[in-house]
Design a protein around this nucleic acid. Structure first.
Ligand SMILES: [Mn+2]
Ligand SMILES: [Mn+2]
Ligand SMILES: [Mn+2]
Ligand SMILES: [Mn+2]
Lengths: 218, 218
DNA sequence: TTAAATTTTTAGACTCGCCTAAATTTTAAT
DNA sequence: ATTAAAATTTAGGCGAGTCTAAAAATTTAA
């Protein structure tokens, strides 16, 4: 159907896309560690294949066919991540690289059965929602920790940054999905917070607070 | 490490190799549905990379590095096949195409954990032995059904042809790995047999008899 | 043993995905 | 409104992997 390279571009455009704004060539190149000229080449091909609209010098956006394709890839990526964590003892910071490969395996039955084996999970190990076979999913409306005030509390339901570095930082401080977190204090001058979990109190920078999404308590 | 294409060539050479005889360019091309000229190109590259010896106009054979590589790919292929059958409800005639893709996923941890999840299986769904992490395996010495005489019996332990067509033929006649089979009769003039299972008696051609490997009783 | 048939390699070309360098367009700043 | 800076595209090229057609080597058959 589509090449691995095409699929990676489609997924990247999807992730960079915000509403119906065009995604710039440079943004794609930056995210994919390629050169802008390579991106231009691929955008022409995706436009040719009706997977993306491409307006020279302005940017690109996925067509509905491209969006469908993106959802299938993301569904596969996230299901494989769940599989790796639930069945193969991977930690949440190890799954990305492998899922990046597995998401390109072509087999409808494979992914349907995997979904079943895992009991139709709704979220991946980083709290991201898993689209169903039709490509539909509901974006849970979680609250960025950095938006909260002292006394607010909730459980960690998602992380924005899924890099190994960041996830291992959370591991080090015994913070994982489902961890109950209460805001203790907020420093206005640098935006940092002091948070409390069942285990301990912890000061975190604004940078970290921006990455954490909580499901607020009742 | 090695490209998907290189890996596919290595695997093919392994399967065609018999002792230390050279494998011919045309044999490889035939098996891989490519042209002889493409094979020549790749053989030069594999020789360059020390994965195969290549004697122009004579043929090629894997070096010990190539053999190691082949065993790892085959290990992955067969473990994934077991996974598909045991965990994802694939039938033995559906696994090959998908395993052909999955065998190229690069992750040591993935395959070690998969092996563990499956309880270190010794054989794949077609009765082929699964190499261990070091690439070692013992070729079970099963007997080709076509070598047997009336009264001989055993359980089906392996099939040579793993094509969908052939496996579905066996399914149709309720023959699967582990099925107890007794030779009832052997026709000298065309090499055909009449065999008996718990379910029924069945005449099979020499062609079919050649594909079936039995573990003899007692 | 010579000629014909077969196998294999070489030569040249193509697509895909990527790159660098140069040209062009857009945007931001004076 | 010009000009400088930044973003983007074009032009040309490269490696991997494949193909077709032609040349060369090997095998087989007469
Ligand atoms: Mn990917
Ligand atoms: Mn994820
Ligand atoms: Mn393969
Ligand atoms: Mn098999």
């Amino acid at each position: 159907m589509h090449s691995v390279s095409e699929e990676n571009y489609i997924k990247t455009i999807y992730h960079l896309q915000d509403g119906d704004a065009l995604v710039s060539t440079n943004e794609i190149a930056g995210r994919m560690n390629t050169k802008a000229s390579s991106v231009t080449d691929m955008l022409k091909k995706l436009a040719e294949k009706q997977l993306a609209e491409y307006v020279p010098y302005k940017g690109s956006r996925l067509t509905s066919a491209g969006l469908d394709c993106a959802m299938q890839i993301i569904r596969k990526h996230r299901l494989w991540e769940v599989f790796l964590v639930e069945k193969l003892n991977f930690s949440w910071d190890e799954v990305h690289e492998v899922a990046e490969q597995l998401e390109h395996i072509q087999s409808r039955k494979l992914i349907d059965q995997l979904d079943q084996l895992l009991d139709h999970p709704k979220y991946d190990p980083h709290g991201d929602p898993i689209p169903d076979a039709q490509g539909n999913y509901e974006q849970p409306k979680h609250t960025q920790l950095s938006q909260l005030k002292p006394q607010d509390s909730g459980v960690l339901a998602g992380v924005l940054d899924t890099s190994t570095r960041f996830l291992q930082y959370l591991d080090k401080h015994q913070i994982e999905l489902g961890t109950q977190i209460t805001i203790v204090d907020h420093e206005e001058f640098d935006g940092s917070f002091i948070i409390k979990t069942a285990q301990k109190s912890l000061p975190i920078s604004k940078t970290v607070a921006d990455q954490l999404y909580l499901k607020l308590n009742s």
